[in-house]
Design a protein around this nucleic acid. Sequence first.
DNA 1: TTAGAAATCACTCAAAAGGGGGATGCCGGT
DNA 2: ACCGGCATCCCCCTTTTGAGTGATTTCTAA
Lengths: 208, 208
Amino acid sequence: MPDFIIFEDNDPLRESLVYMLNSDKRYKVVYESNSCEHAASLTRIHQPDIVLMDIDMPGISGIEGVKLVKETRPETAVIMYTVFEDDEKLFACLCAGANGYLLKKTPPARLFDAIEEVLEGGAPMNPSIASRVIASFKKKQGNQKYDLSPRELEVLQLLIKGHSTKIIAATLFISFETVRSHLKNIYNKLHVNCGKEAIAKVLNERIL
Amino acid sequence: MPDFIIFEDNDPLRESLVYMLNSDKRYKVVYESNSCEHAASLTRIHQPDIVLMDIDMPGISGIEGVKLVKETRPETAVIMYTVFEDDEKLFACLCAGANGYLLKKTPPARLFDAIEEVLEGGAPMNPSIASRVIASFKKKQGNQKYDLSPRELEVLQLLIKGHSTKIIAATLFISFETVRSHLKNIYNKLHVNCGKEAIAKVLNERIL
DNA sequence: TTAGAAATCACTCAAAAGGGGGATGCCGGT
DNA sequence: ACCGGCATCCCCCTTTTGAGTGATTTCTAA
């Protein structure tokens, strides 16, 4: 049963979302909040599968909120639920790692579809949003969500072939210790703790 | 009259094969080579009906050779003619598209039978080879070429999520040392030396 | 019935990997 | 001129892993 957290400052709307989701026995809202103030710690504590996030909230915006959630727990799917239709906020959210982008005019039934869609790894969004995203692909290349340096990429590519630190060092003609440094930085950027996790993450999420 | 190409680096053997086949007025050897270096272009040029292919050759192996021939001209029948009886090479050849697999200990008379067999669309192979192929089909469904036990599969599935030995042990409610035993066996069966290589191999070759 | 697998656990030893520091030099932007 | 990112290297220390051996139990198939 997927766990939800809802960030939405409009009280009636938030409550009706909570009510809707909890009415469906497939879902469970484990937390609701009217601000992104503690998005990171809430995510760490509740380990939600899906986060519904408004953009326009007092204090920390939903765009920052997405970053906080994703940095804390990248596997949590974040669906933006907002009135904003302008490109700037849209792309800011997607760059921050949002999995879906729904307008508040979206009928509730479509919301449930969207939830199922993200659970299956999809990226639900309104048609008008989708077309803008497609259009942007002509130039925008969303590779570096992990912001790895060129050298780190080289090291990572060797790592995911299963090579040891020694072999990587020999291959790149640099010292063992340097490779270790790169690996430490890579692990931090990928939010993993060891090479095995890194390989698993990269290959499963086809990051490279 | 079916045309032959023979790839065999052992000169006396290759020459005797050529002599044998050309002595039979039903067959014609249109080319012979001691390496698979130009297997693709030779196949394109001579359009052979049958290729006799050794496995162990300097440079490009016969296994690669089969691929080259089959990619160039799928209707050409390839008969592997080799001393190797081990499963790994056998299955590699069959996966690469070999039509038959004969051991060099096969008497010449049987070789002619085999040629007729492939010309009729059959798949000639020595009984010992055939039995291994049949045997492999029982398990081939579940996990493919690596014959992992059910428990080993469970461990491997956790491994490729990047989990540590400790975590795997806790997840399966077995001891740390048992997981280590399973991992050692898995590494042997996958022909790798460490977990990172195993993850890389499994995910890159989408074995699971 | 017995030989062989599968699964379980244990112990040793050495190598590899991970986490924490810190240091240097280079380069680009403010 | 200064700061930050990048790449390079070094040290210390702990944990994890790999490799080798060996043992027990259970179950199945020859």
